[in-house]
Amino acid sequence: MSSPEFPPVRAAGRGAAWYRGDCHVHSVHSDGELTPEGLAARARAMRLDFIATTEHNAAAKPGAWGHLAADDFLILLGEEVTTKTGHWLALGLAPGKVIDWNHQTGDGRVGECLDQVHRAGGVCVAAHPRAPYPSGDFMFPFPGFDVVEVWNGLWASDRPWNADNEAALAEWARTLAADVRTGSWRPAMGNSDTHLEGQIGIPHTVVLAEELSTTAVLAGIRAGRSWIAESADVDGSFTAHADDRAAGLGERLATHGGQVEIRAAVRGVPAGTISFHTDRGRVHQALLPDDGAGAVRWPTTAEQSAFVRIEVRHPNGHVAALTNPIVLV
């Protein structure tokens, strides 16, 4: 039987579960050094459940990816829309679909391009908003985009976390207080931006999805039911509890004016720190033990905290994981 030209939009997966994926990768079909076969093999070795093809200004080539999908490995179709005033990811495109990249800040055309992706059920991601090279610095306004790539691992082989990611994280974090209150906040995600050997999956996004399918994964990303990990060696659980009610990342917890307990459990970050952040900035920090496995609980209220998000850092200050917020109402 011949292999499909394009990967299926659904894999068997594990049902409703947390799935790990890298939604920003480049192959030899744009400016990457690895073949699709090489990328898929390395993604699976990094314990990823899905990847997205995001060649620069080009659709996934027929026959290049379809044979690499599996019951436990989903391949989404996408594009890195590479303009003169910033790059963005169009995720969840139909086979052969290309989004026009001939637009820039001030010409009024980006909205039309975003609408094309949204009409197809896709997700638009502001990519590496503080990348230190021509056209990499993201100059478009964030409204209209669904997600911000706050952690980009292009230099991951020698610098898993750098000042450009720190600046992108700080910019995104500053917008949360106002955006959460209006219900229009944009989730964060992290991707490797793989071009070279040794980059894929560093970092990646861990998404709560109803199934391992393009639609379900994108729904989880769009809703912010996700967190970012530097590798599959880092694992965590992040929830908020009020009486008999609980909420996870990207969700709203009705507190009825009572106390809330934020719970974070992390593995894989020896001697690291867990910090809790709200609309008041960083409000609490705790140390992880030398074996890297620890749990922290912190009390608050909706009056004190419109949301809570969590950062996990190594002793040198580099991020190992960070979450989207849990909104308290």
Rank of each mutant, 00 (worst) to 15 (best):
V266D: 04
K61N: 00
R309I: 07
L77N: 01
A170S: 13
L253V: 09
F145P: 00
I200A: 08
R297N: 11
R186T: 03
A293V: 12
V234S: 04
A12K: 09
D100C: 09
L76M: 12
S3M: 13
V147I: 03
G258L: 15
L39K: 02
G268V: 11
E197H: 11
R252V: 14
G66W: 06
D290E: 10
T54M: 02
G32E: 10
S192H: 07
D179H: 03
P143T: 04
D71T: 05
H318T: 14
E166F: 00
R174V: 12
I51F: 15
E149Y: 08
G153M: 07
L169R: 06
A12P: 05
T194N: 14
A209S: 06
S231L: 07
G268P: 10
V296G: 00
G198H: 07
V117Y: 02
A295P: 06
A246E: 15
P95C: 07
E171T: 07
T214I: 05
T35I: 13
F6R: 07
Y19Q: 07
V125Y: 00
R309K: 08
T175M: 11
T82Q: 08
G13R: 01
A271P: 05
Q199R: 14
I221F: 01
L34Q: 09
R130V: 07
H241S: 15
A60S: 10
L76Y: 03
E79L: 06
V217L: 07
A11I: 13
C124K: 01
D146C: 02
D100Q: 09
V123H: 01
A168L: 04
D49E: 11
D100M: 09
S237E: 09
A321D: 03
A254N: 14
V9S: 06
G248K: 12
V329I: 14
A167D: 10
A229M: 04
S275E: 15
N165E: 12
G257C: 13
A43P: 00
P203T: 14
I200S: 03
A177C: 08
V260F: 01
Y19N: 06
W172A: 03
F145C: 01
G66H: 04
F145D: 00
I75H: 06
W298Y: 15
W298C: 15
R186G: 01
H67Q: 08
W298S: 13
V269F: 12
D290G: 05
A242I: 11
L208M: 14
P160R: 01
T175I: 03
W161T: 12
A209P: 04
E303V: 09
P299Q: 10
V9K: 01
E5P: 10
E171M: 06
